[in-house]
Design a protein around this nucleic acid. Sequence first.
RNA 1: GCGCCUGUAGCUCAGUUGGAUAGAGCAUCUGCCUUCUAAGCAGGGUGUCGGGAGUUCGAAUCUCUCCAGGCGCGCCA
Length: 561
Amino acid sequence: MSIYQSIKDNIYRRLEEAVNEAKACGELVFEECPAFVLEEPRERQHGDLATNLAMLLTKQARRAPREIAEIILKHFNTENTWISSWEIAGPGFINFRLNPAWLQGVIPEVLAQGDKYGSVNIGRGQKVQVEFVSANPTGLLHMGNARGAALGDSLASLLSVAGYQVEREFYINDAGNQIINFALSLEARYLEQFGQEVEFPEAGYHGEDLIDTVKRFIARDGDAYLHIEAEKRREALVRFALEEKIAAIKETLEDFGVYYDVWFSEKSLHDSGYIQETMQILKEKGYIYEQEGALWLRSTLFGDEKDEVIVRSNGLATYFAADIAYHRHKFERGFSKVINIWGADHHGHVARMKGAMQALGYDPDSLQIILMQLVRLIQGGEVVRMSKRSGRYITLRELMDEVGKDAARFFFLLRDPDSTVEFDLDLAKQESQDNPVYYVQYAHARLCSILRQARELGYDPDINPKQEQLALLNSPEERDLLKKIADLPGEIALAAKLTEPHRLARYVLDLAALFHTFYNSQRVLVPDEDLRTARLGLVRSVRYVLANVLRILGVSAPEKM
RNA sequence: GCGCCUGUAGCUCAGUUGGAUAGAGCAUCUGCCUUCUAAGCAGGGUGUCGGGAGUUCGAAUCUCUCCAGGCGCGCCA
């Protein structure tokens, strides 16, 4: 546990003890100590830590909050808490001030842990899977996929440093209806290339990229599939196109900094009979019935609005059936937690998916679905409807070409998944120069620059500062920086608990701001050896923290800019 | 019609799960480079937290209602 965390935990416990002691003395009456908060007040003048405990006890104790605060403080033991003073303020807050000497412990802690600083172990090695993007392999990756990629990848990294054993997975939708449409679209493009007039399938994929795919197919196999039966032609086209599309998706995601552990094929679930087997289990449990020639799942038993078809009257399993089998497969692989990142347009699917897991006997809460709102693309002042079928969308590739990987990722990571982001590509291009990501990266480059120069001047920046040297770091700028650094393990624990990586993007932005302020107010490479050693220790620590967080976010930390 | 999400500064967005005087960035204005990177710093103003009602010591946060936008409600995925 980090220094700061243990200080807070300790004070929290002492408060509980004080309250219980007051109760034992008969000075306070209450049933149970309420869950109070001990937090950093927004206003500096309110001290380092504040608690609302007294106010929460008013109802039970039937006394004025400030009176209760008095009683609590009378029983409060400050020994070994770093508390230097306290006061009762406002409606009944208890504000604590800490002896700033506690900050001297921060740098040694960071330097000792280095790349690992910030890691916590709330996961205790539990296996977690994060499945994200899982775009249909029938086209290119678009802005929505970009958001999902940034979010999913960072979440996976975050959980990993929070002590979970994480696997990243991409579910390949290489079966079902859309593959049939895909085949028909490819076939139409294929025949077109040989000058045949063909009607393009209504539900087909109009993207131009399919034309290129077909051209490459022809370059390889010529007209070999022109005069044979349609089924074989389609099969060959689909096999070729899928392979190519999946490879392209993989390559694009890798360029975006996303690497998967598992690429899971939907088709494999059909081929191996796993879907059949899963349906059989549900049938044996009595959750399936037949109506109008189709098989239905009684999903209403588990909170769904209506029952769902899982096998169509034509005998084909629906996407839902495959998805149930897929998620059963996930749990069978031993994940204690399974996280899916879906676009908000799939939210109707959430309840029935969880319901299906419950039907299979799994804890539906082990399946967490993070919905992200769609990305609204603005171009020329107008909303551009994104659709694979219409073929009109800005691709992830174009996004990276225009604004760069780091800026694109950071853009998404600064936002809560629940917010509908508007992405104006023209504006993004124009603003890519002052993207907040550069603010953070610049801080990192500056830190590296200081360390470089220190070496050039013959100073060894890797000396670990002694306590008395660290005591010299007592300016407000230095204290703020130290406090922020000390926060990291807590920030990571909270972000992981809430599965909200965007908190870390905010954190790193705040940290960069504090560093830039420090940089402009104090020099690191000063003649005084003790002060210089202490500040170099601070510089190294801040650099570790920036680099560690940027690594989680999948953003590079350049040494020079 | 029903369900989910959203509405915070001119723009893009945060807001530690109910705390004290609501914050950043962009834009705009004023200062700061013979000293570790000016992609930076310091300072100036900007708010009916969509409207209304309620819950309580205390609400941007919880409840209800209304308004606006997005997305769902297929034998599509």
